[in-house]
Amino acid sequence: MARIVGAITTSHVPAIGKAIARNLQEDAYWKPFFDGFPPVHRWLAQARPDVAVIFYNDHGLNFFLDKMPTFAVGAAPQYRNADEGWGIPTVPPVPGDPRLSWHLIEGLVAGDFDITTCQEMLVDHAFTIPLALLWPGSGAWPVRAVPVCINTVQYPLPSAMRCYRLGQAIGRAIESYPEDLRVVVIGTGGLSHQLDGERAGFINKAFDTEFMERLPADPLWATRYSVPELAKLTGTQGVELLMWLAARGALGGEAATVHSNYHIPISNTAAGLMLMEPRAA
């Protein structure tokens, strides 16, 4: 049977892609951010996941406003990265696992999540930067991937509770997959930041800190807020924490933090990183 070995949540700021391309990991500005990752690399070397299920939000590479799915699940043999218009270098295609994708799709629709399925899907920096952070320097990715895209472009966005439950449904589907697979779930985005409007530059360290503390043992804490309330508390792009809630949902009942890091600022963003493992109740 397939098994979820852990969940990793991380920010996906485009500037990180540029910093990786320029080898700025030891640079004073970047070091506090990149120094968060070696413990996760060591964990991944032990956990050896076969597949990564990645919750992320598209920023106008694959989806435009002509068709904007609330939840979209990839079912492609591979996922290509492409030019997003502002010059971060593209990364090699990521292999998919269509059989697992369709199993997740079957489970989701049976569980009343009426998702969009994608047999072709370009993946943007929100998908590729976390891979580059988790498996640095790998020209060929050591995992297959299943992308799960959550709309954060156009309101109404799905609620925090809905995203958490989406994650739970995916977690149950993974655990019912007959193949012996080791699966890591990844949630990308956040934490607090706002790029647009007179409030640009908004960051809320107190909220982020509480969010990260609560996520393993009390994930429902954040679901008390509506998405507009979360935008007020965390900034317009801070709502990407929905990906973290979905990833946490996939872990199921009990979870514990193995490692975390938090640094302000990376670009305009409070950058967060968490590694959580499921714990038997």
């Binding site: 406003l65 492409a82 997003e84 218009g85 156009q154 647009d196 409007g197 507009p228 935008a231």
Partner: peptide, 27 residues
């Protein structure tokens, strides 16, 4: 939310042409 415009249906309709042009800049 002060200093903030949430991009809802009204904004999405109003800005369609502008956003479509910007989306084309992926190329």
């Amino acid at each position: 939310i002060p200093g903030t415009t949430l991009f809802d249906g009204a904004q999405a309709m109003k800005g369609y042409a502008l956003n479509k042009m910007c989306y084309s800049f992926n190329s």
